[in-house]
Simulated assay, not measured.
Amino acid sequence: MQTFARLLLTAVAGMLVVAAGHGVAAAPAASVAHSQLPWLSPEPDGVQAPGAALAEGIAGTVLWSRQPNTPVPIASITKVMTALVVINAGDLDRTITVPQEIVAYCTRYDGSNAGLVPGEVLTARQLLYAMLLPSGCDAAYTLAEAYGPGQDEFIATMNDTARHMGLAGTHFTDPSGLPAPTDHSTYSTPADLVALGLRAMSLPAFRDIVSSQSYHLPAGPGNRDHLWQTTNLLLHDYPGTIGIKTGYTDAAGTCLLFETVRAGIPLIGVVLHSSPDSDVAAKDDAERMLNWVYNPILSVLPIS
């Protein structure tokens, strides 16, 4: 890890300094293996998202950002905190019965779901797959109900966790990120979400789930057959992607929290409201940000 840290600092030093929400570009003077890194611009071109941040994936040092400390709705990226609370609580092999209330909950807010049926019995780990891959609000509600216990207690734990992590621009009122009670009552900032993503990705159980393109749960004595597929287009399309979570509501637009590793270099970032409704726009924003860092490095380190 120290070798990587030195490599990344060498690659980025003299190229970019980011401070307190304002990007300040320096000359492209860094070199790797005595080669000049051809950084062509002081920031990634064509990023549509009004809120965004990109950081190295070890200490979370921000390399570029846009409105990093502005709180905005984050939709289902909220489920990263829900997963963090559940995994921290432990006992992921405990069995949980899906409550009847998921039907009204998902219907009321037109939330995405994992096709769960009240009365099914799944483990907490299986419910994490149901929540994080197809972005199942039914799974998020079920986990919150079990681990709170109850929604109010669980949401309080989410906010306590955010506070202990120093995420001053973050607040939760729902375990799914749905507009409950209002469009803007659950919110965060690009800088906070990078920190949250970094913490979640340090947990093997979380990392294993969000790096999966799909998960098949065969029918059993207490559950139906389920096949859950990720909503994260980067996992299909961008080399080195290892997670993590999409989001969409009318107020949040399309959002994506993501992490990749190429040439041994992890990067973590987020885009918020890339488009009113296009998941592809969020993916494209993320790719532009990632390529801005990786392409110059890969041009002198021929590793894909």
Rank of each mutant, 00 (worst) to 15 (best):
E120W: 03
R108P: 05
M81L: 11
V86E: 13
E101C: 04
A89C: 03
P68V: 01
A52I: 02
V85C: 10
R94L: 01
R108V: 04
L37F: 08
P68Q: 06
T107V: 10
T123I: 04
P68H: 09
A59F: 02
G119V: 02
A114C: 01
V47M: 06
E120Q: 03
R108G: 09
T61H: 07
I87R: 11
L63S: 12
A89E: 10
V121D: 01
L40C: 06
E101F: 00
P118M: 01
A52G: 05
D110A: 15
P50D: 05
E43V: 12
L40G: 15
R66H: 13
N113S: 14
S35N: 10
A83Y: 14
C106N: 09
R66N: 01
S65L: 02
Q48R: 14
G57M: 01
L63K: 11
P118L: 03
Q36C: 00
D91P: 03
I102F: 03
V72F: 01
V47W: 04
E101T: 14
G51E: 10
E101N: 11
A104H: 09
P71L: 04
Q48D: 06
P118H: 05
V103H: 09
T95I: 10
T95G: 09
R66S: 04
S35C: 02
K79D: 03
P38Q: 01
P99Y: 05
V80G: 06
V86T: 15
T61K: 13
L122W: 09
W64S: 07
N88D: 15
